[in-house]
Amino acid sequence: MSVTVPQTELQPGLSGTRAALRRNFWRGVARVLRRKPSRMVGVAIVALFLLMAAFGPMLYPAHLPRDNNALYAPPSLAHPFGTDFEGTDVLALVVTGARYVILTGLVTAVITVAAGTLLGLLAGFHRGRWDTALMRLTDLQLTIPGLPLLLVLSTVWKFQGPLAMGLVLGLLGWGGIARAVRSQTLSLRERGFIEAARGLGLSTTHIIGRELLPSMAPYIAMNMLIAVTGAIYAQVGLFFLGVLPFDSNNWGVMLNLAVFGGGALTSAAALPYLLAPLLAILLLTLGIVLVVDAMDEIFNPRLREE
């Protein structure tokens, strides 16, 4: 044989074991994130909000203290974002409200991505009748006007907490991802390695799970993060419009009360009350956008290692 290759020690199994690969993957992820400071900022912001959602409510008593002497108090050391109409600390409201918002966002994202990816993959891989049926279903979903339906739904069904909310938003949002994943699948299935896998007689499960899905990982991860932001906007909007009962603490509720109750648009007193949840939403979106930037490099071994 006329090829010269560096003679390295044959290390059976070691270079290929799953544990080693996983270790390398996470090392690569860390490297990708360190490459740009903006990504680290994004990760920090997202981590902050996740911590808020997980532990925020534990930091405060179940019923936040009111202070009738400090209604709409301006920002101060004790109340960094002032207080609301009852004299409750706005920062505490934002922190305790994060759980509902983020939980809904995550549930929605998981449902849209899972349903969208599964249907998109099946339609794109099997083509033919499967494709036609699934895509008609997707078209149907896409033609459902989301907001009006939610308004109608909310009059007959009181959403029981963030999980129910996420479920509804998720079922209304998977169509776009399904279409996108289908088109990706259609182009990937023509690639040599998919054809080779079929030629070698590998199972469909293997081809879809091990060959197709990882190639689409950056795409799916990106869509998932974007779905989170979409879901957050949607539910905050619903609460802001006041179509959902204010039975829990939520950024949307705060916005609603600040605008319609406190007159934040006309008087300066309620302004911090309005701005605090807005700022939280903006910051979380920014964090997610900054992280999305890294997805391509994280899931592409070539970009990950360079």
Partner: peptide, 10 residues
């Protein structure tokens, strides 16, 4: 294109 870029040769 004949090799999956996300999988090692192993």
């Amino acid at each position: 294109s004949a090799l999956n870029p996300t999988r090692t040769i192993h």
